[in-house]
Design a protein around this nucleic acid. Sequence first.
DNA 1: GTAACTGCAAAAACTTTGCTGAGTT
DNA 2: AACTCAGCAAAGTTTTTGCAGTTAC
Lengths: 149, 149
Amino acid sequence: MTPREIESRVEQFGQRCREAGLSLTPQRLTIYRALLESADRPAPEALYSRVRPALPSLSLATIYKTLDTLAQLGLVAELPATGSSRRFDGNMERHHHLVCTRCGRVSDFSDPGLDGIAPPSGIKGFTAQHLAIHVHGLCRECGPGRAGH
Amino acid sequence: MTPREIESRVEQFGQRCREAGLSLTPQRLTIYRALLESADRPAPEALYSRVRPALPSLSLATIYKTLDTLAQLGLVAELPATGSSRRFDGNMERHHHLVCTRCGRVSDFSDPGLDGIAPPSGIKGFTAQHLAIHVHGLCRECGPGRAGH
DNA sequence: GTAACTGCAAAAACTTTGCTGAGTT
DNA sequence: AACTCAGCAAAGTTTTTGCAGTTAC
């Protein structure tokens, strides 16, 4: 995401917070901005490391609380992930996922060709909103032609 | 899954373990079978409760170790999930996922129409193997026209 | 007999909670 | 001034680890 895009998002973010009656604290802004700047769907702990230099007094509990708050507002997404920690993403645009079947790492990709696929509408008891594609395979590091981890 | 299918899978499972040099312990067999019998993608703890009646001395650590071992062999799948515990599935067939954007619950569905979609091949640094579709929306409980959780 | 595995208990990692002082509106 | 929030520390969960005795081969 370009710096310009980020600033525009941060501004919208401010509005959205005000609408919802949330204070605009430096912590919230910094955490949100850091999430936008992270392309790698960070875990709370990773986000914490990233934000700490700017806000040395920040606590990990605040990261958790903030992420939960923002997820409820729909400003960030909590992602389904494997492994034992939660993952978050500030990119709410249409995008798909590459999942490495060996190391479990996930990254984003976009493909206009795939965007044409419509969510199936006839599923009983489920109201489809949108759809994301997970492509499973081997990432660069685990590449084809390697033995194991 | 029918009992007959389950037995056939368990048999294949035995072969696969032998090939890999793994012992066929009662714990492993029971855990694997319990997973096949569970349609609900259980967390380790839930699987533990299910298996305990049959193996009262079983420990939770064994569940974790076993699931990791079997996942590495490709005999069970660890699923991406939101929330704070890992989820596993013994169903390795082609299927897709319904993810509730409100409560986070995930369930399986199949749709032959979607099975035709080929994994995109031109992604740089990534070798695509297969693809799964996540349909996001509202499940029956959270249904459209509800206020919140 | 050897190698692999389970159970246990302890430790580590991750997440949530309650409270108090500080910051935002 | 009222209300919301951050930081802290403690508690609660979930997951991993090391080791000794047991089991599968």
